[in-house]
């Protein structure tokens, strides 16, 4: 009986991801039939590049949201990392590319560390703390760069080629994206650390009474999303080659959080999967590109994403409610048969 219950649940959970997958296929069909240019290879690779950047940051954001927190500052963190890396590259043209990537990740990690401390030891709710640092980091980008943008000729060719060249047929940018998703999948499903992250989100008080270090885990997930946002900064630079202090990754947090929530991560913590987030990123990427390609005005584009989030969460709530009811029924029946 218990086994049956269990397989039923996994079935429903899988259905959620399957649902997103189906919706992606529908979107592809609709956009493709309205505007055949949608399927041209340059457009597809543009979609993949933006999806890749979303995935890298979204992978980190998933774990943050799982712990009942949220990081609104990911766009500014990404911008800050990209800007610092760009400036290092501009001043030192011979700086090794691996070094540049590490610099970006380090800057992102420091931003994450600040967020983590504010939320854990500072006891500031993450939505407030990161709203603050969203503005602070954005301001810092101007201060650090003196409001001078990084031009394509200042960016090393090796960085730019991350978006196009590859060792195995797919660009580095996508490899990084997949690796981030796989890393989060591995952490969340295979390691004790992952289980602790989910435990903290599932029942924070319980976590403390079981001796889990609540503050350490909180800081860790914020540093993690920061480091990944730093990596995102590298990929952003690879894709756009220009880093403008005013609009580098501005508003990225909206797309990232949308993707994570659409992907099924519970905003109240405790559950969420890397695969769901990956699919959510693909969905957001296709939607935003497709609407532009078929000529929908930017205003409607923003609305469409908004509607999608609301629909995803509303459907999720319905499913969850029904699921819970079925669950209780099944348990009651189990008791009777006992």
């Amino acid at each position: 009986m218990a086994v049956q219950l269990n397989s039923k649940i996994t079935y429903i959970f899988k259905k959620r991801e399957f649902g997103i997958f189906l919706f992606i296929l529908v979107l592809l069909a609709v956009f493709g039939s309205i505007e055949p240019r949608f399927f041209r290879s340059d457009n597809l690779s543009a979609i993949l590049s933006s999806v890749g950047i979303l995935m890298v940051v979204g992978a980190g954001q998933t774990l943050v949201i799982v712990t009942r927190n949220i990081d609104l500052s990911v766009g500014s963190t990404l911008g800050m990392s990209a800007m610092v890396m760009g400036m290092v590259a501009r001043e030192n043209p011979d700086f090794p590319i691996v070094g540049l990537i590490l610099v970006a990740m380090l800057v992102g990690g420091i931003c994450g560390l600040i967020n983590g401390y504010l939320v854990s030891y500072g006891m500031i709710p993450s939505i407030i703390a990161t709203l603050g640092t969203l503005a602070i980091f954005r301001g810092a980008i101007f201060l650090v760069s003196d409001n001078v943008q990084i031009d394509p000729e200042d960016v090393p060719k090796d960085i730019i080629s991350l978006a196009t060249t590859s060792p195995i047929g797919i660009p580095w940018l996508l490899i990084f994206a997949f690796l981030s998703i796989i890393l989060v999948w591995y952490i969340s499903s295979q390691t004790l650390l992952g289980k602790r992250i989910y435990a903290v989100g599932s029942n924070p008080e319980g976590a403390v009474s079981r001796g889990l270090s609540f503050n350490k885990i909180t800081i860790l997930v914020f540093v993690f999303v920061g480091v990944l946002a730093g990596l995102g900064g590298v990929l952003y630079t690879a894709r756009y080659a220009t880093i403008n202090p005013a609009d580098v990754a501005r508003g990225l947090e909206f797309d990232v959080i949308s993707a994570v929530v659409i992907g099924g991560t519970n905003i109240f913590g405790g559950s969420g999967t890397a695969l769901g987030t990956a699919l959510g990123c693909v969905l957001i990427g296709i939607l935003s590109n497709g609407l532009t390609v078929v000529g929908v005005s930017p205003f409607w584009k923003a609305c469409a994403t908004g509607f999608l989030i609301l629909a995803a969460v509303a459907i999720d709530n319905l499913v969850r409610k029904r699921q819970e009811q079925n669950f209780l029924l099944a348990i009651r029946n189990q008791r009777v048969t006992k």
Partner: peptide, 27 residues
Amino acid sequence: QNSGVALIHQEPRLFPDLSVLENVCVD
């Protein structure tokens, strides 16, 4: 806790989203 003391509360302090096994092993 590591020296072998455990407290079981009035309301079980568990993690509803995790499985039984994960709950047992998490700490």
